[in-house]
Simulated assay, not measured.
Amino acid sequence: MDGPVRGRRPGRRAVGGHHRHSPLAGESAGGAGEPRLLSGRELSALRVNAITDPLTGLYNRRFLYDHLQREMSRAERTGGVVSLMMMDLQGFKSINDRLGHPVGDTVLVKTAKVIRDSLRAVDAGCRYGGDEFVAVLPNTTLMGSLAVAERVRQRVAKIQLPRRIGLQMGLHYGVATFPSDGRTSDFLIRTCDQRLYDCRRYNSDPRTRRHPRFAVQGLGLRLARGGVARQREFEVKDIGYGGLAFIYPSARAPSHLEGEIIQEFASDTHHVTMKPVSVKPLSDGRSRVGCAYVH
């Protein structure tokens, strides 16, 4: 935060960190040593620099908080949704340690370009700090934001590193949606950060590395067919781009499931076709069914 300006003289007005000087009586507007007026182009550059990360060219954390609050307020007025997507690079510390920080900076710049190229004009990509990035996605459901996150992940995986070090680029991500996952910007960011942590945990396990998932709230699965589940809606417990898990009312699940994912407060639905890959019996006779999407 800028400190107070010392020695301010009457007639001066602070503009963008500089002082605009209104000449006092007997003073010349062009007197020697007087600060000059900033041009419109210079003022614009100052405003851009104040909200931009200097390394990657993405927006910075200051812009993120203000912009997210604006988009949440707009969504609340219109009855819409806005999603937040938080990402970090898998194994980035090893890249810095083994290849040096200049190479690490290059990786960050390339990742930022991937994020920028993967977003729409109405979306905002931000550098949150270190190797963490955030994107604000207006009018995007949780399922829509998962599709964006997976697109970014696949593109980041193609960033080339020297083969001799045996490292490969990877991306963790977590997503959250207003208002179902939180109604304040701080809570939404915390939820997104927790889901990013869950994604890291899944990636650390070779059995789940292909399809990282995280716990969710406010999602329902309405099955079009499947015996006792016909036309009933079930709570989705966790979800990822590759599949989801939900509670089924019996110990045995059908071999084929088809239906719609419904998000609280969102008007559109997402059609899915799935096959069960794991069925865990529960003590009350129900089962937790893990499914993989069938494309």
Rank of each mutant, 00 (worst) to 15 (best):
L55E: 08
H295R: 12
L257S: 13
R225D: 14
R61H: 06
L99F: 01
A75E: 08
L257K: 09
D105A: 06
L137S: 09
R232H: 03
C126N: 02
A149D: 09
A215V: 12
D238S: 10
R116Q: 14
A32P: 05
R127M: 05
A245Y: 04
G26C: 13
R9G: 11
S267M: 03
V134Q: 10
F246S: 01
L24Y: 07
G130T: 05
E42G: 09
A25V: 10
I261R: 11
R201G: 11
D284V: 00
A14R: 07
M143Q: 13
V228C: 04
L99Q: 01
E27F: 04
R13I: 15
D181H: 15
T191Q: 13
L171R: 01
A266V: 05
G218D: 00
S39R: 15
L55C: 13
Q217E: 14
G130D: 03
H67C: 14
S204I: 04
I95A: 00
T191P: 00
S94L: 15
L68H: 15
V5S: 14
A124Y: 08
V122E: 15
V82W: 06
R207P: 04
D105E: 09
R200A: 11
S287I: 09
R164M: 01
A245K: 05
L89W: 02
L171K: 04
R200F: 00
G259V: 00
F265S: 05
E264V: 09
P4D: 15
A50Y: 07
R9Q: 13
P254S: 08
R74Y: 09
G7Y: 03
R183Y: 11
T141K: 05
I262H: 11
R8S: 12
R8N: 08
T141A: 06
R47P: 13
P54Q: 12
V277Q: 07
N203M: 12
K280A: 05
F246A: 01
H18E: 08
G240P: 13
Y59H: 14
G259Y: 00
L46W: 04
L108Q: 08
H19A: 14
S39Q: 15
L244I: 06
K237F: 06
R77W: 00
D66R: 14
F214C: 12
R41P: 06
R77P: 06
G242L: 03
G240R: 07
G227D: 10
L89K: 01
A253V: 11
V279Y: 06
T208D: 10
G7L: 08
P23K: 11
R288M: 15
S118P: 01
M143S: 15
I239Y: 08
Y202H: 13
R153F: 00
L161C: 11
V136Y: 08
L108D: 01
H18Q: 12
H211Y: 08
G226S: 05
L146N: 10
F265G: 04
G174C: 01
V122Y: 09
L64Y: 04
F265T: 02
A75Q: 08
R252E: 09
D117E: 07
G259D: 00
D181S: 11
